[in-house]
Structure formats: C-alpha cells, structure tokens
Design a protein around this nucleic acid. Sequence first.
DNA 1: AATCATTTGTAACAAAAGTCACATAGCAAA
DNA 2: TTTGCTATGTGACTTTTGTTACAAATGATT
Lengths: 209, 209
Amino acid sequence: MNNTATFDSTFEPALVKEMQEFGELKHYKEGDIIMDYGKYIRMMPIIVNGNIKVLRMDENGKEILLYYLSSNESCSMAYSCCVEAKKSEVKAIAEDDVELIAIPHTKLDEWLCKYPSWKNYIMRSFNERFLELLKSIESIAFHKLDERLISYLREKQRLSGSSVIKVSHYLIADELATSRVVVSRLLKQLENDGKILLYRNEIKLLKEF
Amino acid sequence: MNNTATFDSTFEPALVKEMQEFGELKHYKEGDIIMDYGKYIRMMPIIVNGNIKVLRMDENGKEILLYYLSSNESCSMAYSCCVEAKKSEVKAIAEDDVELIAIPHTKLDEWLCKYPSWKNYIMRSFNERFLELLKSIESIAFHKLDERLISYLREKQRLSGSSVIKVSHYLIADELATSRVVVSRLLKQLENDGKILLYRNEIKLLKEF
DNA sequence: AATCATTTGTAACAAAAGTCACATAGCAAA
DNA sequence: TTTGCTATGTGACTTTTGTTACAAATGATT
C-alpha cells in the first residue's frame, strides 16, 4: 500500500505504518457496489480518492440517497457494524473511480486504545455521519422538491468539480425518492429560468445557477 | 447513586462500581429541556427510567422529532460531542419524568479501553441511533402523512404503555413537521373509521387501531 | 354565570407532488 | 438507413398537503 500521504498529518507515524502493513488497498470502478444490504461487513473502508454514495432502500424497493463519502472519510456505520458483526443496512456505490484502504475488523478495536489519533478519527467520523443524516432529514422534511433538486445538483457539482453533470432524470428521481416526470418538470423550469441547460444524460449548470 | 440493577447484566462489576462512584444521578420532570441547541455537552447521559425525545430544528424554527430514548439507552450524539467538545445539534426534552446517570466526559475515554463492555455498549448505541435516524428518513421520504401519524400514535402508545395519549393536535403537527389543520383532518378521518376517539388534549386508541 | 385562552372542526381554496398516456428526440447497433 | 432502446417533453388529471379564515367546543378562572 502507498498513497497515504494525506494520512501522515492525521495519524501518528506508528499508526500509518500499521495501516500500510494491515490495510488492503482496493480499487472500484464507477458504479461498482462496494457494500450491499444484508451483507456482513468485515472491514472498514477509508477512502483515499474518489466518491462513494450511500443509499437506503425501503420495503418496496425505492431507494433514497443518504450522503456521499469523499477522500479521507469513512463510513462509521461500517465501523460499528464490524465491531458488532452486523449486516449492512445501507448500500454503497462508487460514484466515480474509487481507491480505498480496507482495515480488517480485528485491528479496529486494537488501534482504538493504542492510538489516540485513531480514536479521534473514529469519533469525528461518527459525528460527521450523524450530521449528514440530520442534513438529509432536514432536507426531506423542511424543503420542497425544487430546493432539494438544486441542492442535489450543487452537491454533484462539488463532488465532480465540474458544472457538467452526467445523470439521467431517472437517476435523480430515484435518489430524491420521487418520480421521473416530476424531476423533468422541475429541471425544465430551471432551464426556462436560464439557470441550466438540458441534454441527454447531461445537465450543464450555468453561471446564473 | 443506586438503581443500577439493570446495568449489572450489561457491564462488568468493576465498571458498575466506577459508574456509581463517578456518575451523577439526575432527575428531570416532564417537559424539562435536558439538552439544547448550541449548548456544550460535558456529560453523557444513560437513562435509568423515563423517556426522552430528541428533536432537530431547521433555520426557520420548525422542529421535527428524530427519535425517543428509553431506559438503558443513551445518546451517542452526546458521546462523540463530548469527546470532541462540540456543541449540540439537537434538543432533548423529557417526555415524562426521567432519571439518568450523567457520566463525566473524562471517564468516557478511559473506560473505552479499560472495559470491553463499555466499548460494546457505546458501539451498540451508535448503531442503534444510526438506525433510528434511518427509520426517521424512511418514514418521511417514503410514507404519507396518514401513515406517519399512525406510526407516531403507536410509538406514543408503546412509550407510555397506555392507549390514551395526552397530546394536542398542535404538538403532533410540530413533531411531524406539518400543520395543525392537516393533523386534525387526518385524526378526524381515523375517528370516522372507528380507529380512535378524540377528546380535548387526548386521543384514545381503540382495539380497531 | 360570564370571561378568557386554548383547542378543535371545517369549508374553501391554493400549491405541490404524483400518475398516466403518449409524443418526440437522441444515440447506437444491425 | 432502418430499427430499437432509452431518455426526455408535456398535457391532463388526481391526490396529497398546505393555508386562511372563522366557528364552535372545552375547561379554567373570576
């Protein structure tokens, strides 16, 4: 394993060394399913680069986007699942090409007491994920679809670093837990307002957006 | 401190002893604010008996119910906030009379390495709270108000152990993040369907509910 | 009993979101 | 070029939710 440059400032040298020794560097391509509902989780991922989207499905198969994980972040859900040997309640998909370090669950506990920086990282991670879920709840409970759609597009822009977003209206509808027709309608409204341009599988955000 | 009978099966004797020594038993009356937005959190609560409701407010002051905490449970949010010396992002109110043990933040870390049962408790707590939030998201995103209202009433029934629920339509509307008129309308529908009986500040759930 | 604050009921309407049906456009493989 | 699949556009309609306004009921307090 290499590519841990960014970790050097976060973790103690001895921990970085252990991470290099016991962590396994994994690669995923865009669209790969990294974690799925009901699967046991045996390792905790720390993302080196790329973005992961985390989804939740209801009884009827409808999925909603919970949050994204980016470089240096980790899924705290995975952590507590590992420690407790639980099955996953969420699905994780590579949003683009992803490189991550898989930490075997046997080490998670050990490091918690051994390295303060690890404990802090885990706690910060729990807190961040908790806040992401709160943000998600706020978004659904307090904001109308047009606002949620705009937030969604901004988030995509932030993650990809580009104003050209490659998605179909169907995917957006899925991730916002609504229907395609509604999304098309709202997007067309944004286009009429001069905020965006619509193409097949592509949305271009203008300066006015 | 006494009243830790239920903890004996969960925690090592030595830990129970430490909890008795360092934990502070606190009492709250129904409606007391146990934790508020922006306040620093310096102790982690473990509930001995009673129920606590945890709320989240948006920018405009509207609040939504996140979940309830009952006996033996704890707010994992408080834990990570303690460790990181963060301000609270949520509000906690005593749903009925509450007794809790306040663990000072200095002990949290120490016990994590010292007592496996403590670490397990904390991890389970994180996981449970995470799942509560997922449930909350599912409820808002996938279910219509009539279904959410029914779940709400059932939860109240479960917590109070009674089929007679003492709340105003206003409170329900607040906690479900909707308006009073809508709640009254849906409740009246349930009454017409022979599922409940409506009184002032009181809802009686019938067998048919 | 009269007063008052609070809660609940309800009509009427507006806005938001969901659904159905079908047309059209874009792209790629045969 | 034709075929076919997928994506998008849009009208028409329904359902759900939100809003406003006001009436009536309830319970506590003078």
